[in-house]
Design a protein around this nucleic acid. Structure first.
Length: 429
RNA sequence: GGAGAGAUACUCAAGAGGUCGAAGAGGAGGCCCUGCUAAGGCCUUAGUCCGGGCAACUGGAGCGAGGGUUCAAAUCCCUCUCUCUCCGCCA
């Protein structure tokens, strides 16, 4: 959500930004919201004046009652009652207008950074940089589910019986490997000075509405029956929600945290759940990082944050690249965003393992996350980035560390977390 | 899960329908007194949000949140959230 003041003072800029995002159907919303805003302010003035007069008259009634001048008091009461009829009307209209304005404001996209490449959709996203050689070995890399099966690590059949499609049992060394990667990622971030946090895995509706749109919520979030609670789709939700309606001391900034959580996603819509593997599933685990900082520092943090992820994957011997989201593919709340993609030697292309975004002050404005500055309070900037997501990282890890005999190498960084093992062997039947 | 108590400014706390946006105390800040220190005296200290005005300034909202009653709500009623105490259950 952008500042409505920006629309009041510079509607052209907002329109330009909409054009850059190829959402021309939203252009008229800018004028619409201006018109509604003017109406709303006029009503507010009228309402405030009426309330002011009511406050005055009520005071008089109080005095008259004390002096037992009941008749005079009743005269004034009549006036106030009349006043109140109009006030009720105005309040209704105001509510309606405010709602309309908010609805429109929610759909007007955030102003994107000047460095964001212009493009219509994900096909025009731009590769920024490759890290590590995308190696294609001289033997065939099987589908990850087959690799896992050979290692005795995956049971989707049982999960189908207990929980249905989109769930899985991970077992043995591959399961340990997931924990190892998450632990390694966690410690890496702690070493960068981030504060480790285990947040609530369920959040209330008002928090959900603060961090995502209604449509997103519908497509992602599992609702707990009979409770005002949703299972989180990522710990970003509870981590950013943590600061809802808070005024943060400048001396406490920047807030840099790394959180662990399981993530639950309905995955309704375009892609759906695939039958075999664990690429798209209802449940996975994730180490996440979030930063809340002063506006002038957010771009620095953005660049540091994706670089952490790149470094972690490189230490796991996984080639990666960064792919910048073009204007048209950028979610409306985001100022700038890039995906970290891992190399798949099987598909011989890169696939998404993480996503780094700066939302400017849009999310903070929605949630009321502010800092107390010398010249008053101001909205902070919020950023989030995947450190490491269990299933995606596992796939990338297996494909890139696989040997021809089906065993999987454990890189140095991970060995302490694997009890010193240097290799996962194929499980003999 | 049961029973009870509570939520008021930076903190503690009074207020129980009408000059209450809120006593008092602590803390913090400023000034005075003082050779220094201690003690003392005086003063200031509601943030926030939304409007109007070039501005000085000014109107409105706001006593955990949301509704309701009333001319008028911190105060009465309803719902919710959170905290504390006791009982039960539990890793």
């Amino acid at each position: 959500m952008i500042d409505i003041n920006l629309i009041r003072t510079n509607p052209e800029l907002v329109k330009e930004n909409i054009k850059k995002k190829f959402q021309n159907n939203k252009l008229e919303l800018v004028d619409k919201v201006l018109e509604l805003d003017n109406k709303n302010r006029a009503l507010k003035k009228e309402g405030d004046d009426l309330r002011a007069s009511r406050n005055k008259l009520s005071g008089q009634i109080g005095l008259l009652m004390k002096e037992k001048k009941i008749d005079e008091a009743n005269e004034i009461k009549k006036q106030v009652v009349k006043n109140n009829e109009r006030i009720v009307e105005i309040e209704k209209e105001e509510d309606e207008l405010t709602k309309q304005i908010k609805t429109i404001m929610m759909t007007i996209p955030n102003i994107i950074d000047s460095t964001v490449p212009i493009g219509k959709d994900d096909s025009e996203n731009v590769e920024i940089e490759k890290f590590g050689e995308p190696v294609v070995p001289n033997f065939e890399i099987p589908y990850h589910a087959d690799i896992l099966e050979k290692l005795g690590g995956l049971d989707k059949e049982s999960a189908g019986r207990t929980s249905g499609n989109g769930f899985y049992y991970l077992m043995g060394d591959p399961a340990r490997l997931v924990s190892a990667m998450i632990s390694y990622a966690r410690d890496y971030m702690i070493n960068q000075g981030f504060t480790y946090c285990i947040p609530p895995f369920m959040i209330r509706a008002d928090v959900v509405n603060g961090v995502m749109s209604f449509a997103e919520m519908d497509a992602m979030m599992y609702k707990i029956e009979g409770e005002d609670l949703f299972l989180i789709g990522t710990s970003e939700h509870s981590m950013i929600g943590k600061f809802k309606d808070q005024i943060i001391k400048e001396s406490d900034l920047p807030i840099t945290m790394t959180s662990y959580s399981p993530c639950f996603r309905k995955e309704v819509g375009a892609h759906g759940i695939e039958e075999r593997g664990i690429y798209r599933v209802h449940q996975f685990e994730k180490q996440e990082m979030i930063v809340i900082c002063k506006p002038e520092e957010s771009m620095d943090w953005y660049n540091k944050m994706w670089a952490y992820t790149v470094d972690i994957f490189r230490n796991l011997n996984i080639p990666v690249r960064t792919l910048e989201c073009c204007s048209g593919d950028l979610a409306d709340l985001k100022v700038k965003s890039c995906d970290v993609e891992a190399w798949s030697p099987r598909q011989q292309k890169y696939f998404e393992v993480g996503s780094c975004s700066t939302l400017g002050d849009a999310q903070a404005r929605r949630l009321g996350i502010r800092a107390k500055g010398e010249k008053g309070n101001y909205y902070l900037h919020t950023l989030n980035n995947t450190v490491l997501a269990s299933t995606r990282a596992l796939i990338a890890f297996l494909e890139n560390n696989l040997n021809a005999d089906g065993s999987v190498n454990i890189p140095k960084a991970l060995q302490p977390y694997m009890g010193g093992k240097t290799k996962i062997e194929v499980k003999q039947k």
